[in-house]
Design a protein around this nucleic acid. Structure first.
Lengths: 197, 197
DNA sequence: AGCGGCGCTTGACAGTGTCAAGTAGAAATC
DNA sequence: GATTTCTACTTGACACTGTCAAGCGCCGCT
């Protein structure tokens, strides 16, 4: 009995996901993935040309999940400003729940998006949700929509990144819970954006 | 003739700075540093216990330069909101001019700040400038000073990070220059912050 | 029955960070 | 002044990495 074709491919992806979740991005190695999948160190290369392409597949899945999370966060929320906040919170939450995955998705030295169509497409898919909601906000407050988009994205992305790298302890203040800080920042941005242009 | 003590230490740091500037963060290797410094692959270990400690020294220098740049950007600027914008622009500019250096400074897997006192102190030194100016802004608009700080920092940090990773092309819009986008985001944040609480 | 090819394994190579041991030469001790 | 000590450095080795190059066994086809 031979394994179904494409079966090992999925096994390898799952092993990769498990590995980065358990050991972090720098603990990722092709050989360890192969070990976890129970195959030789070269078997993965039969399904992926190289390390970057495996990572690109993981990135693609990450952006799909990020998009799903964003859309789920929008469910039932009508007010554009609240919707933008909801996406922002989902974004940071995703980053904190999947730190290595998130880093991988946003570090070009691991995956050059322009060389991996699927990853690129999924990234655009997630991005589109933000474009849509930022557009709703801009339509309300009269600001330039691309600027609203960029500002909101930068803020939540910076917040997520700084949290992930442990740089915010000194900024949050003594004993402050980090999720409270996230809420404060996002709430503040929402309030600021509510002001008309 | 023997080299002056601590001389190789400086040579190694300079070689490291040159290497990351030329080859990027992932091109950095202890052995390549040694090669550039013209010594054996183990010589650097006589002045630094390990790779992370060399990187920590580089991080420390980076934060010193960031602090200097921030202070220089404040020179002659009186208005708190303009001052915050000036720091923000200096922050992004620093990141774009020293991409690998900037990444190194903000990635905890390379340098765990808590284990390297000098790097930590320099990071706090740069951070203090931001604390000060965010405080001035909060005193004016009546917002919570830590939240102003966090929001401003997150925004410029996210902007810098996304630019560095080449993720903003799709967000800037067709043919848009990225520095114009930076100015727009920072200007928008400034305008938003000018509104009282 | 024989064969081609697909899926995987084994082996090798150059590169890495770092441990361990050796060495040349200046300084210190007698 | 000869000998020892110490310091700055070199040489060598190890386990690990990603990836190139062959080899091997089993499946379906003719």
């Amino acid at each position: 009995m031979r394994a179904a074709p494409e079966n090992l491919r999925r096994t390898i992806l799952d092993a990769s996901l498990g590995l980065i979740a358990a050991e972090g991005l720098e603990g990722f190695s092709m050989r360890e993935v192969a070990r976890r999948a129970g195959v030789s160190h070269q078997a993965p290369y039969h399904h992926f040309p190289d390390r970057e392409t495996i990572m690109a597949a993981i990135v693609a899945e990450g952006f799909q999940r990020l998009r799903d999370n964003s859309l789920a966060a929008l469910e039932g929320v009508e007010d554009p400003f609240e919707r933008l906040s909801a996406i922002g919170r989902a974004y940071v939450k995703f980053a904190l729940n999947n730190p290595a995955h998130f880093k991988l998705m946003f570090r070009s030295e691991h995956v050059r998006e322009d060389r991996h169509d699927e990853a690129k497409a999924c990234a655009l898919g997630a991005f589109d949700v933000l474009v849509m909601v930022a557009g709703e906000v801009a339509a309300r407050n009269g600001h330039h929509d691309r600027t609203v988009l960029l500002t909101a994205w930068s803020t939540v992305h910076g917040l997520a990144t700084l949290l992930l790298e442990g740089k915010l302890e000194k900024a949050i203040g003594a004993g402050g819970a980090s999720d409270a800080a996230v809420d404060r920042v996002i709430a503040m941005l929402e309030r600021l954006l509510r002001a008309d242009a």
